[in-house]
């Protein structure tokens, strides 16, 4: 009667699991780089009220933060073809992740920018820096440093959320796990391993990003 655990049929597909994990990491990397870049752009427009972009980003942020990621993904993958925009599963997944992370990181980075002490702006102004120079050389790095842990957490959330990209046939880790358990019916073992992989990847990515942040954003090793 008792269930007999057997990981062998799952481990036989280790290559698929690892490919899926690599795909998830790849999606995350692309989503994080482009998403944070979009967030920086949105944050400066919001924080310094650069119209009409500030208003546009405001609408965008609210639209994304108040709708499910899966629906955003379906809209891009199934909805946009009606407008003639046909994207592959990968393209749609990356686009959805960038748009999603872009909205959250706009708000996170905006908080970092708005926490800039007024004296920093005055010092930059007194040295004859213009607004763009002030942002790039004085405001941006300390702002990112202030919110880096929150930003890293958001990247992890998006990485874990990318599991739903399996629903549009992007062959990432969850897709691989689903495929394997449909072949061997070892759902417990398959998803146990997939879960462990997600857990390990999340820990790894968090460590990596925190180290990169310390090195390149805070600017000196701890």
């Amino acid at each position: 009667m008792a269930y007999q655990f057997d990981f062998a049929p799952v481990l036989a597909h280790t290559d698929l699991l690892l490919q899926g994990a690599a795909a998830t990491l790849g999606l995350t990397a692309a989503g994080a780089v482009l998403g944070i870049a979009l967030g920086v752009l949105g944050a400066i427009c919001r924080a310094w009220r650069i119209q009409p972009f500030s208003a546009a980003f405001g609408v965008y942020v609210e639209a994304i933060r108040n709708t499910p990621f899966l629906v955003q993904l379906f809209f891009i993958f199934f909805g946009l073809p009606a407008l003639g925009v046909k994207l592959s599963g990968w393209e749609a997944s990356i686009l959805a992740m960038v748009i999603n992370l872009g909205a959250y990181s706009t708000e996170i980075i905006r908080a970092g920018i708005e926490a800039t002490p007024h004296g920093q702006m005055e010092a930059a102004a007194s040295l004859a820096l213009n607004r763009a120079q002030t942002f790039v050389y004085v405001v941006l790095r300390p702002a990112l440093a202030r919110v880096w842990p929150a930003l890293v957490s958001q990247v992890i959330i998006v990485m874990l959320g990318s599991a739903v990209c399996s629903q549009i046939a992007a062959e990432e880790l969850t897709f691989a796990a689903n495929f394997i358990q449909s072949r061997n019916f070892r759902a417990f073992e398959t998803f146990f391993l997939a879960t462990a992989l997600y857990f390990a990847m999340a820990l790894l990515v968090r460590q990596l990003l925190m180290r990169l942040g310390q090195r390149f954003i805070v600017g000196r090793p701890r």
């Binding site: 004296g119 005055e122 010092a123 790095r141 300390p142 600017g219």
Partner: peptide
């Protein structure tokens, strides 16, 4: 308050 740039 000096206002040095802390990251430099």
């Amino acid at each position: 308050q000096f206002n040095l740039f802390p990251h430099l």
